[in-house]
Design a protein around this nucleic acid. Structure first.
Length: 99
DNA sequence: CACGTGACGTCTA
DNA sequence: TTAGACGCCACGT
């Protein structure tokens, strides 16, 4: 399971500005397609000063899964990437940012 | 060992 | 399109 986390970090480091990935895609690309739920747990353990673009990870519906303050932080960071998000956390033109 | 939980995903009505 | 039911699985209690 440690390797799973490492793969997550590696894959995440390759996500460029203006690009997004879902929890499921991360899990699959890391070699564990059934562990989508664990991606969130792993990301939650990242130090708040990490340089990894954790905010470019959203759910398969193209919406932010975080709540409260965390939601605001992710929304703000994504907007700095030039991505538009609704008050509901819905990412406009979501699919165009995948890949 | 059983049970609840969670930054999720897919299927169905 | 949306909401609810299920499936999934490492982890803490």
């Amino acid at each position: 399971m440690k390797e799973f986390a490492q793969n997550i970090y590696t894959i995440l480091s390759y996500i460029e500005k203006g690009s997004l990935i879902t929890y499921g895609q991360l899990a699959s690309q890391a070699g564990y397609p059934a562990h989508s739920r664990h991606v969130g747990k792993i990301l939650a353990k990242l130090p708040k000063d990490t340089r990894l673009p954790w905010f470019r990870v959203v759910n398969s519906q193209g919406k932010i899964s975080l709540q409260g303050d965390a939601f605001i932080r992710q929304k703000t960071l994504l907007e700095q990437d030039g991505i538009t998000i609704t008050e509901q956390g819905k990412i406009l033109k979501f699919k165009q940012y995948l890949g």
